[in-house]
């Protein structure tokens, strides 16, 4: 059993409520992503799970055991830090087996496990190096190796890829996900990058100002954003939100088409060519709206175009609370198809 459950957990720094009544569950063997902009409380939530911070209120359970007042070591977790937190004076091998040494694991077993882990993370030829002699991606692998050698059932990751370049980030993303599934770990993964969340997670918890904005599968967050905030956060580019009278309407860029005789007049401001598709940045009544069109879009900045989308693709939000309005017919249809 290694499911992680938080019930009504809070943590304040002075007057600031960093984590405000957060409840969530990460199922055993699943990967849960804590997503949100910086300062939303996602890292603090992770540190509360790790036991690096003490919760002001609420309870944390790992594998059904209440760990709220246990030390980090007693919680039997492993963790990868954003900075990797490698010990700079120790070799790669010593970094990886640090925890085994602390627990006085026999030398033979230490060596055997080190070999196994070094093979998994692809560091077998670098074991004698110091962290300063490694590239960013290699350091990341050392941190991963140190996390998995303990064979803890729970692994916590605090923005592990944010110091890597785009290509490496993509590679490591796939690798971490594969590793998590292969070892069957329960993983809580903190990131501000919605792409990482969408591609890796079984479940995404989107946070904002210390509270949970939405908790669901990547598909739910994408197809049924509960609030305008979620809608603006998920997707590249994110959902367009257009105020029409006293309605707040959300529409994904890929659901908009540039057609002659469309319902909405718009002016093209800029075009981004991505190769397989293009993002046409337009304006409707002074409100920005982006349109994804296949291939190399021929429209020019300054051009007047007409846009069209199907009513079924519209998401409606309350213009004041910015919550999703479920009443509309289209949403009802969408809900049954998703659920």
């Amino acid at each position: 059993m290694s499911a992680i459950t938080l019930s009504h957990v809070s943590k304040s720094w002075g007057a600031m409520r960093a984590v405000d009544d957060v409840s969530l569950t990460a199922d055993e063997g699943s990967l849960l992503v804590l997503l949100g902009p910086s300062g939303c409380g996602k890292s603090t939530t992770l540190r509360l799970i790790a036991g690096l911070e003490d919760a002001d209120g609420g309870a944390i359970a790992i594998g059904g055991v209440d760990v709220t007042h246990l030390t980090p070591a007693q919680r039997k977790i492993s963790m990868v830090f954003q900075s990797y937190a490698l010990f700079p004076h120790l070799s790669v091998a010593e970094n990886i087996v640090f925890g085994l040494r602390v627990r006085r694991v026999s030398r033979a077993e230490r060596d055997a496990r080190l070999r196994r882990v070094a093979d998994i993370v692809g560091l077998a030829h670098l074991l004698e190096r110091k962290p300063a002699q490694l590239s960013g991606g290699q350091r990341q692998r050392v941190a991963l190796g140190r996390a998995i050698i303990a064979e803890a059932r729970v692994c916590l990751m605090d923005e592990p890829l944010s110091n890597l370049d785009a290509k490496l980030r993509h590679e490591m993303r796939t690798e971490i996900r594969a590793l998590q599934q292969r070892l069957g770990m329960t993983m809580v993964y903190v990131t501000h990058d919605q792409t990482e969340a969408m591609t890796m997670a079984d479940r995404v918890v989107l946070m904002r100002d210390g509270r949970i904005e939405q908790n669901g599968s990547p598909e739910e967050l994408y197809n049924r954003p509960a609030t305008a905030f979620t809608a603006r956060f998920i997707g590249t580019p994110p959902m367009n939100l257009v105020r029409q009278g006293d309605h707040l309407i959300g529409i994904r860029p890929e659901h908009i088409r540039i057609v002659t005789g469309g319902d909405h007049a718009a002016r093209v401001k800029a075009v981004e060519h991505l190769g397989a598709d293009s993002i046409v940045l337009c304006e409707i009544d002074g409100q920005p709206i982006s349109v994804r069109s296949d291939g190399f879009s021929k429209v020019q900045p300054g051009e007047d175009v007409r846009l069209a989308w199907e009513a079924g693709h519209e998401h409606r939000f309350d213009p004041v609370s910015e919550r999703r309005l479920e009443a509309s017919v289209q949403d009802g249809r969408l809900a049954t198809s998703v659920g």
Binding site: A50, L52, P72, A73, F81, S83, A85, F87, F98, V102
Partner: peptide, 18 residues
């Protein structure tokens, strides 16, 4: 010294003295 190092060690179960 980065406080991360101490935290990483504490997660591995190292005592303060260690």
């Amino acid at each position: 010294l980065s406080p991360d190092l101490e935290e990483a060690a504490s997660i591995e179960g190292a005592s303060r003295w260690y």
